[in-house]
Computed example of a mutant assay.
Amino acid sequence: MVIISKPLFYEKLEPTIKCRDLVHPDISSCTKANLKLCLEAFLPGVFYFYLPIHLLQVILDYKKINRKNFLKNLLKNILRSESFGVTFGGLAIATICLHSHLSERLRYYTLLLLPGIVAGISIRWEHPRNRQLNTILWASLVVEALFKNAYYFKIFTYSPIKETLIFMLVSSSLMHLFINRDKKQIPFNLWFYKPSDPKKYKFTLYNYFREISKYFGFGYGLNSIRCVLKDAKMMFKSPLQFIRKTAFNRSNLKFGIIIGLYVGLFRGVSVLLQKYSNLEKANAAIAGLVAGISYYIEPNMTILTTAVVTVLQILCKQISTIPEFRKIPFTELVFMFCNGILFFNRIVAPVTCPKYYTNMLQITANGELEKIYIRLVNKYLP
Rank of each mutant, 00 (worst) to 15 (best):
R226E: 05
S81E: 10
N73Y: 06
T364V: 08
A291S: 14
L51P: 01
N130G: 11
T246D: 07
I259Q: 03
N189R: 03
M234H: 08
K233F: 03
I297S: 08
D182V: 05
K63D: 14
L56W: 07
F188R: 04
L369E: 04
C227A: 08
E144W: 05
K245Y: 05
N130C: 10
K254H: 09
I53P: 01
D21E: 14
I53V: 11
I117E: 06
V228A: 11
I161K: 07
I319W: 04
Q132G: 08
R226L: 10
S103R: 08
Y262W: 08
Q362D: 14
I93M: 03
K194S: 15
G116H: 00
Y193Q: 00
L174C: 08
A41T: 02
Y50S: 13
A94L: 08
K202W: 13
I322W: 05
F344D: 07
S171F: 00
R346C: 04
P329I: 04
G268W: 07
K199A: 10
S81R: 01
I186P: 01
G219P: 05
N189S: 15
S103Q: 12
N339D: 13
I161D: 12
N359T: 11
G90S: 03
L315S: 08
H24W: 08
Y10N: 02
Y373E: 04
N223P: 01
L261C: 12
L60A: 11
H54M: 11
Q185A: 15
N77P: 01
L75C: 15
I212V: 06
W125E: 14
G45Q: 00
N378A: 15
Q318E: 14
F343C: 02
V263K: 05
P44I: 02
Y208M: 01
F203R: 04
G268C: 11
S196W: 09
Y109Q: 06
S238M: 07
I347V: 15
G340T: 03
F248L: 14
V290K: 02
V142L: 02
R210E: 06
F42L: 07
T135P: 09
S251R: 04
I4E: 00
P354G: 09
R326N: 13
K237P: 08
V271S: 03
R250T: 13
T157H: 12
P115D: 03
K6F: 03
V351K: 07
N66T: 03
L315W: 09
